[in-house]
Design a binder for these strands. Structure first.
Lengths: 266, 266
DNA sequence: TTCTTTCGTTCGGTATTACCGCACAGCATG
DNA sequence: CATGCTGTGCGGTAATACCGAACGAAAGAA
């Protein structure tokens, strides 16, 4: 066997397998998975899967739900995830601003940080009584299908945008997703002038987002705030108002970061 | 070597080590840990620690913060923790009640589920502008030092309380921690009559908690709601009012669970 | 009922592997 | 310059995690 690419020489394979297992459980239905499903999806014998699962159970990374047993994500992950998210500096700084925007707008407000041009949402505040969007945290999202992603791209030079677009390939998510680089650049040019970016059903049908980026002390984009709602609830005048509010919130974050906004025309 | 107790025959040791490493990082300062600290605390060579860390980095369970590199908990844990906590049935049910209580009281409201008589907090809503308590989620807490723990104990027969007390040994946390079984039983008897439990600086100096339990369809205690504040802000009349509000919130949760409250006198 | 299937669990044996020791490179600091 | 830290690489070997087979139990079919 001379496979070198899939894992580096230094990768501890058992650990990588354990993480693949956790990802599999995370992507499976909430009821959990059975041991046989694990062994099948992981391509390993039942006894090997059993050992892995037992290890995860002992560490509370999984728990067994009767009947079945069906295995679900355990409380140790709640613990680690809580600590990890609390330690993200952006989260504490932005939390009160998220809460205020959520109250003012009655919408779901999220904050993303930048990861190589891609947005990674790190916190979310659902407005009371609002529609709940099942948006994951801690995942690198596509930059061209979300308002936050486009707000982040807008802070980069066009050449950089083209590089990122080439990397991820602008996959289609809905009928209205922008899948061509020129159209993306045009949309971002408009966003730069306007001061906020818009996602008009480009990620999910019927869902509308408004987002604005904030900047750190180097003038680099550190992330974006976004407001998410149902399109039918958002006439043009409301979007304009939302854009101003999100823009103001993002500028406030920039101030708290001790940052200065980069010139709009990059 | 004939050690059998520390790990069962089915434990995948590398994975257990990876989890110990994550716990270590979680308990270390927020700035992260260096490779040498890892190898020391884990009792393994630097090269072995390097392999583990590389594996965790590749999976985004850790990320390297410059300078140093110092290793911190990564976004994959935010992702998994978010999914895990969203899938806890109690969390969705109680979320709006937490938000309402937090607004009404201006305090931090938490919800715990039961794990063998111990409370495990699974969600928290900080009131805007309130003091932030650094209370972890997803961890089995001591039953006798928190209001939530005592509210949960109050739903158990005295014999069961004595067993749990013997298990964890009632360790002291502050000057006012109850460390003797008779005093604990007396405190819980009062809580049963009153309808809510109190933690009067028994876990942290200066911190006061009020909690009430809720019940599932079997009449078993499923968890508790608690309100946490600074003692100097809470005169007796306010505590009484808080107790009524928390009790009402917990009863509401009981209703949503399709449950019926167990008879107070167990 | 009885047969059949499928589940989770357990146990040796062996091929795989993860670890230790050592050596080297990049930075700081003295 | 020397000296103390880092993190990074590479063999060799002891440790190990995996496979395959088998068992008891439970669920479904005849």
């Amino acid at each position: 066997m001379t496979d070198e690419d899939p894992v580096s020489r230094y990768t501890v394979r058992s650990v990588a397998k354990a993480f693949r297992l956790l990802s599999m459980v995370a992507e499976a239905p909430a009821e959990g998975v059975t041991l046989s499903e694990v062994s099948q999806h992981m391509g390993m014998s039942k006894s090997a899967a059993y050992g892995l699962v037992r290890t995860l159970l002992d560490a509370d990374y999984l728990y067994a739900r009767e009947p079945g047993p069906r295995y679900c994500l355990g409380t140790a992950l709640v613990w680690l995830g809580d600590i990890a998210s609390r330690r993200l500096p952006l989260r504490d700084i932005t939390a009160p601003i998220l809460a205020r925007l959520s109250q003012q707008t009655g919408l779901t407000i999220r904050v993303a940080r930048v990861d190589d041009g891609h947005p990674v949402f790190i916190n979310r505040v659902d407005a009371v009584g609002a529609v709940r969007f099942h948006t994951p945290l801690g995942v690198r999202e596509l930059p061209h299908t979300s308002a936050a992603g486009k707000a982040i791209l807008a802070a980069l030079p066009d050449a950089e945008i083209e590089r990122i677009a080439a990397d991820c390939g602008l996959p289609r998510r809905t009928r209205k997703t922008i899948t061509e680089v020129p159209a993306l650049l045009a949309d971002i040019t408009v966003a730069r002038r306007r001061g906020y970016a818009i996602d008009d059903e480009e990620d999910f049908e019927g869902v509308f987002c408004v987002a604005a980026a904030f900047f750190d002390h180097d003038g680099d984009c550190a992330g974006a705030l976004s407001a998410t709602g149902i399109k039918v609830d958002l006439p043009a005048w409301r979007i304009e108002e939302l854009g101003r509010m999100v823009r103001a919130g993002a500028d406030e974050v920039t101030g708290l970061l001790g940052g200065r906004p980069r010139d709009r025309e990059v």
